[in-house]
Design a protein around this nucleic acid. Structure first.
Length: 916
RNA sequence: GCCCGGGUGACGAAAUCGGUAGACGUGGCGGACUUAAACUCCGCUGCCCCUAAGGGGCGUGUGGGUUCGAAUCCCACCCCGGGCACCA
């Protein structure tokens, strides 16, 4: 234990204050219409077993922000819960025969304890756990509302079917088309499942107005929705329905020389001729063995099969061949495309491979060398479009299609409806039954929730026990007739699409949420979480909120708002107003320098006389006789290197001799040991690599305050970065110093007015700076500013040259500003200062702008843009005084010399640039 | 392939508006304290050159440009990370 640590017992201090906070309930958030509200939310964790450092990285800065908002006068709600349904629990059940309830609950217990050790201000009375019947009753209830609103329907979608296990596998369980556990093949099979009509909201989801969200997230969602404008065109087929396609280039219709259908397209049956049937069937069978991901792999050769059938190009009247190819997906657009090789390079490739005709319909520029021409130009070979450029030609063609009844202008989205069916046990049941006649019926609301049976057995196949559980399966319909219960359960994204509502009143049993609570707290003001949820979770919850709004689920809430004088207009359009993403804490994999060491063998080490960094990666250097060594620097401590030779031999310890030459070609001049780069072996954190940083150990050793401070100090929060355990010491010293400063018996010795004013200035500047940084999620610079204030206080304590009043004021400011970041030590110091109410109930300090103002500042004097002098000047210095002062400075005078001053760039008081 | 980020000392980083590059911290080096080690404290720490004090040059992935002045803006290129991907 360190000397500092002997005195600061973080374990005792943190435990005590956590107990006090819990007992006094200072983090309870209650509706108070007299105060402005702030709903801060951080993404809820999946109870996977242990909290990892990433949770700390995500949650403690969010907690600091929530605490800051509270000090700024807001009534802050900051809840926490668990996204508790999901595959891992079921996998554990199948593998170890532990019931998912038990597995999940014991994990939740453990994580609750770990979460409390963070010292967060979570209001635990708001906790919601999505796998409890009290919660999923309402998940089911929402399903029923969506069904009634026509937003839930049954449709077909491909699933990963394992013929050997007779079960459906998740994408992550399938690797290279095989079951990851058994290695058995997996096929793509159509299955009837439940969907939500998120596509009805595609247009609204494209609008982010009023949302303070990161631009990349908005861009990703926009791309995911993938709006394209074009036309639907029908190609007649003899003796069958026409083939409908969507195209963004209706202007090129004259150049459509063939068509391609998805192998699953229903018209394939009709179009395939007898002599092509065998080839088509074989191709379709092959396609079913490929996942969508494989089918759409860019690096794969395009291939397809001719069906033998033809369709008629509606504008030229020509019969064109119809092919099938698996890169055309049934789930996108109409499952069919018109191929225009002249203007589309993919179609060109396909045409070239199979000898299909090409007709150019856009005139390429002179000397155009490429194949397909995708740029703009006048139409050619296109009858009534000839001479028109793309934009006009599109309009003209759509007019023609509509007039002739061959098609119409259309908008197509890449977004597909949300497939919510999961063929699993551990999820929220879908409250539907199938009558004997096959009709679907909802379970009445008063019979909700449909509960998951507990007496189930899990088999290693991973097959949902619900499908064979008779008491669960047997149901009655609304007329008392026999019915079969739906055995699919819901996607867990469904649970997390509305948890922000459940937190408002987790015990409420009249509705999913209490309108009185919702009227005050909604919407979420600040949402934080990982960017990996950029699209799916965040888009589903946006859809959910909009659907709820349109189904009238917020009407009671709106009424309550009006009753309290709050305008409900626009309050239910979006779930989260502000979004910020944290980066990821990971390991860095940096190679060390590759070196050639020459020296002499001494006992267990090589004493080096010269070290040369080898920059050419292809350099062939012989490894080692006794005195020469080539390898990568694995680590370095002072003058001792550990060098790993290539191809396996043990690492060699190299000691750099006094006066040895070190040569690094990329750094000119003589080089020193410290410039050698060694390998950083902190690798990307993952369970499989066994290098996950366990926060419990860190808390035990350093305390939660130190871990929190380090998490906020070490990285740019939105970026993340590699973990470096050594950096923890800086945070630890800082926390202990704060405690020590708080405990110090300050006695002034030789009070100096300017020192007092100087310390006060630093303190009030810190109020401004830290406030700005916390507003903008810049934790690292906020901590840096506080460390600077700590340094100033250290100096003042040593010199004892500030007044006791200033000392005390500065100390109070230091702990108040640090309180959101390190809640325990600041509470400890605060109470030592004689305060009776918690520091976490104090208002954020107001800066005294006069005290914070600089009196003098360093003026940089440049001559022709190069810094020649730095002069301390009063802030309000006049232009002539500044110029005189600058020109009288010897170094400036030297550079100005006899030259004429042509211009002075005046950025007083910080900078003066004299152009000669 | 497309889109979005990013590239700054030995390391994590800062520079909020085009105006002192490297704040703050880690590590390292030197010193004090110590029987010793740890802890702690003090000093130094981008690279190079001249030097007695003091100066000078170079430097934010590379090359060019705009500007009195560029880590920051523009053009081209290289590299790293993330996302999406035959999207018709």
């Amino acid at each position: 234990m360190t000397k500092r640590n002997q005195r600061y017992d973080h374990g005792r201090v943190e435990a005590r204050w956590q107990e006090v906070w819990e007992r006094t309930g200072i983090y309870r958030a209650e509706v108070d219409w007299e105060r402005p509200k702030h709903y801060a939310l951080t993404m809820l964790p999946y109870p996977s077993g242990d909290l990892h450092i990433g949770h700390w990285y995500a949650m403690t800065p969010s907690d600091a922000r929530a605490r800051y908002m509270r000090m700024k006068g807001y009534n802050v709600l900051f809840p926490m819960g668990f996204d508790a349904f999901g595959l891992p629990a079921e996998t554990a059940a199948a593998r170890a025969n532990i019931h998912p309830w038990k597995w999940t609950y014991s994990n939740i217990e453990r994580m609750r304890r770990q979460l409390r050790s963070m010292g967060t201000m979570f209001d635990w009375e708001r906790e919601a756990v999505s796998c409890t019947p009290e919660y999923y009753r309402w998940t089911e209830w929402f399903f029923s509302r969506l069904y009634e609103a026509g937003l839930a329907y049954r449709g077909e979608a491909l699933v990963n079917w394992s013929p050997s296990l007779q079960t459906v596998l998740a994408n992550e369980q399938v690797i290279d088309g095989k079951d990851e556990r058994t290695g058995q093949p997996v096929v793509q099979r159509m299955m009837e499942q439940w969907f939500f009509r998120i596509t009805d909201y595609a247009e609204e989801l494209l609008s982010f107005s009023g949302l303070d969200w990161p631009e990349p997230i908005k861009a990703m969602q926009t791309n995911w929705i993938g709006r394209s404008v074009g036309a639907r065109v029908r190609f007649p087929v003899e003796g069958a329905d026409p083939i409908e396609v969507f195209t963004t280039r209706p202007d090129t219709l004259h150049g459509a020389t063939f068509m391609v259908l998805a192998p699953e397209h229903p018209l394939v049956e009709v179009l395939t001729t007898a002599d092509q049937r065998e080839a088509v069937e074989a191709y379709r069978a092959g396609a079913s063995g490929r996942s969508e991901l494989q089918r759409t792999d860019l690096t794969r050769d395009k291939h397809g099969v001719f069906t033998g059938g033809y369709a008629t190009n509606p504008v030229t009247g020509t019969d064109i061949p119809v092919w099938i190819a698996d890169y055309v997906l049934m789930s996108y657009g109409t499952g069919a495309i018109m191929a225009v090789p002249g203007e589309d390079s993919r179609d060109w490739e396909f045409a070239a491979k199979y000898g299909l005709p090409v007709v150019r319909t856009v005139q390429p520029p002179d000397h155009f060398e490429g194949n397909a021409y995708e740029g703009d130009g006048p139409s050619i070979n296109s009858d009534f479009l000839d001479g028109l450029y793309i934009a006009e030609a599109k309009v003209a063609m759509i007019d023609w299609l509509e007039a002739e009844g061959r098609g119409e202008g259309a908008i197509q989205y890449r977004l597909r409806d949300w497939l919510i069916s999961r063929q699993r046990y551990w999820g929220s049941p879908i409250p539907a039954v199938y009558r004997e006649d096959g009709a679907v019926e909802l379970v009445p609301d008063d019979a909700l929730p449909v509960e998951l049976p507990e007496d189930v057995e899990f088999t290693p196949t991973g097959r949902s026990p619900l499908v064979s559980h008779e008491p669960f399966l047997n149901a009655v319909d609304s007329e008392g007739g026999p019915a079969t219960r739906e055995t699919d359960t819901m996607d867990t994204f469904m649970c997390s699409s509305w948890y922000q509502l459940r937190y408002l009143s987790p015990g409420y049993d009249l509705a999913p949420f209490d309108p009185e609570e919702a009227a005050y707290w909604l919407p979420v003001d600040t949402y934080t979480g990982g960017a990996e949820h950029a699209v799916m979770h965040l888009m589903y919850t946006r859809f959910f909120t909009k659907a709820l709004r349109d189904m009238g689920c917020f009407e009671d809430t709106a009424a309550a708002m009006r009753a309290h004088g709050r305008d409900p207009e626009g309050m239910f359009d979006e779930p989260m107003v502000m979004l910020r993403n944290q980066g990821q804490v990971l390991g860095e994999e940096r190679r060390g320098d590759r070196v050639l060491v020459v020296g002499r063998q001494e006992e267990d080490r090589l004493k080096a006389d010269s070290v040369l960094v080898v920059t050419d990666p292809d350099a062939q250097l012989e490894y080692a006789d006794g005195d020469r060594l080539v390898g990568e620097i694995v680590s370095r401590t002072e003058h001792v290197l550990v060098v790993q030779p290539p191809d396996g031999p043990d690492p060699v310890t190299v000691e750099i001799a006094e006066g040895a030459t070190i040569e690094i070609p990329t750094i000119p001049g003589p080089n020193s040991v410290t410039q050698l780069r060694h390998r950083l072996d902190v690798q990307r954190m993952s369970k499989s690599r066994g290098n996950v940083v366990n926060p419990d150990d860190l808390v035990e050793r350093f305390g939660a305050d130190t871990v929190r401070t380090y998490m906020m100090f070490a990285f740019e929060w939105e970026k993340g970065g590699p973990w470096d355990s050594r950096g923890m010491r800086g945070a630890q010293r800082f926390i202990v110093d704060v405690w020590r400063l708080g405990k110090a018996e300050y006695r002034a010795r030789s009070v100096d007015d300017s020192a007092s004013a100087g310390l006060r200035r630093r303190a009030h500047q810190a109020i401004i700076k830290v406030g700005q940084d916390l507003e903008s999620f810049s934790w690292n610079t906020a901590v840096a500013e506080l460390m600077k204030l700590r340094n100033s206080m250290n100096d003042a304590l040593a010199a004892r040259n500030v007044t006791p009043e200033v000392w005390r004021e500065t100390l109070s400011i230091l702990v108040l500003l640090l309180a959101p970041i390190a809640p325990h030590v600041t509470e400890e110091v605060w109470s030592r200062l004689g305060n009776r109410t918690s520091i976490h109930l104090q208002p954020w300090p107001e800066p005294d702008m006069e005290a914070a103002a600089d009196e003098s500042v360093t003026m940089v004097v440049q001559v022709n843009g190069r810094v020649r002098s730095r002069i301390e000047v009063p802030v309000g210095i006049s232009e002539s005084a500044a110029l005189d002062l600058a020109l009288s400075h010897h170094n400036v005078a030297r550079h100005v010399g006899e030259s004429e001053v042509r211009r002075v760039i005046d950025r007083r008081p910080r900078l003066l640039n004299i152009v000669v």
